[in-house]
Amino acid sequence: MADSMTEESDYYPGKDDLDWGYQEVGKEPKEGVEWGLLFPDANGEYQSPINLNSREARYDPSLLDVGLTPNYVVCRDCEVINDGHTARIILRSKSVVTGGPLPRDHEYELHEVRFHWGKENQRGSEHTVNFKAFPMELHLIHWNTTLFNSVEEALAKKNGVLIIALFVQIGKEHLGLKAITEVLQDLQYKGKTKIIPCFNPNTLLPDPLLRDYWIYEGSLTTPPCSENVTWILYRYPLTISQLQIEEFRRLRSHLKGAELPEGNDGMLGDNFRPTQPLSDRTVRAAFQ
């Protein structure tokens, strides 16, 4: 795989110096939160995330003609990163997904996993379902290796990027994510990275029999907010423990020793973008 997305490039090489952040919950937007000023794509009509209205989603039985087939393999020497905005797992394995609503015979390779969470359990997910938020949402970010040579090349291109999203609820411990939550204490500050010997992305998918999902066309939910992203959102959430989500909430959004602006506790969380207008898009559902 073209290993072109480095730890610092995030999605947009050369734009590291453009500082962006998230609006604090319950407060007026602060200077610098207006992404559209720095990243014009953020002003587009087909932005993500959105609210999924289950009554308005259109049931499309053709989505079940060909099953969505993830063929993920265990990743050795995965890199886990605190980039100051989120926790990321960079995968080095040839994990792919095909079928379902994707173009026929096209392969999408899993490049990384990102997490979005709230500082409290009643918020945190980027997408909402009937205006209900989950405490966390994770994104499996794929790019089309049939058409493109790198993630950067695939961005903002038709059929270039696929993001499979899963909502996360609080309950029993998630054994597959234990490999990640156990090392988060070593990644407390921005810029910290850790290589973990083994991670199985299959554990992030619901039971293969739970084929219910929504699909729509949107954008990246972080700058540069490029559009032409295909979103597949599973209806059934994953479950992690309260202790596991607390490990994410201990991460910090700043470099070790950095001076923080007044009123900023430096804790990483509430790193979700508000929902965006649906405009004239249709959300399709693989279930009734």
Results as ranks from 00 to 15, higher is better:
S9D: 15
W35D: 13
I215F: 00
L210T: 04
K190C: 15
M136I: 00
P206M: 00
W20A: 06
L278R: 11
K119R: 14
V73M: 11
H85T: 10
D3S: 13
K30A: 15
E34Q: 13
Q242W: 09
L91R: 07
Y216N: 01
G176E: 05
C75V: 00
L18N: 08
T181P: 08
P237D: 00
Y46K: 12
H106I: 06
P103N: 05
E126P: 03
C198K: 13
L63H: 01
L243Y: 08
E45D: 12
L233W: 02
D265Q: 04
V283N: 04
L184W: 10
K119D: 11
D270V: 09
L210M: 10
C225E: 02
I164V: 14
I163E: 06
P40Q: 06
T239P: 04
P277Q: 03
V283E: 04
L205W: 01
G176M: 04
K94T: 09
A133W: 06
D19A: 11
K94Q: 13
R235Q: 11
I90Q: 13
P40W: 06
W143K: 04
S95T: 00
L238W: 03
F199T: 05
K178W: 09
P13V: 13
M267R: 14
L184I: 14
L205C: 02
V74A: 03
G266W: 00
L155H: 10
T239D: 09
L147G: 06
K192P: 03
Y189P: 02
L268K: 01
V74T: 05
T6K: 11
P274F: 12
G218K: 01
K94N: 15
D65C: 05
L220Y: 15
K192A: 12
R273I: 07
P29Q: 09
P29V: 12
V25Q: 13
V80H: 03
Q188D: 03
D16P: 00
G160K: 00
L38F: 13
F248A: 07
K15G: 09
Y216R: 01
E56S: 15
S95E: 01
I245C: 01
L251S: 02
N130W: 07
G124N: 11
S241C: 13
K158I: 14
E107H: 14
V33G: 10
F39I: 02
V283S: 05
E173F: 07
L233Q: 05
S54H: 07
C78W: 05
N271S: 09
L184C: 10
P261A: 08
N202E: 15
V73D: 12
P274G: 12
E152L: 14
I180H: 06
P201F: 06
C198F: 10
P223H: 04
N82Q: 10
D265N: 14
K178Y: 12
A57V: 03
F272L: 02
P101I: 15
G269T: 07
A2G: 07
P13A: 13
G160N: 02
E153G: 10
V183C: 08
G191R: 00
W20C: 05
G118T: 05
E262N: 08
L64H: 04
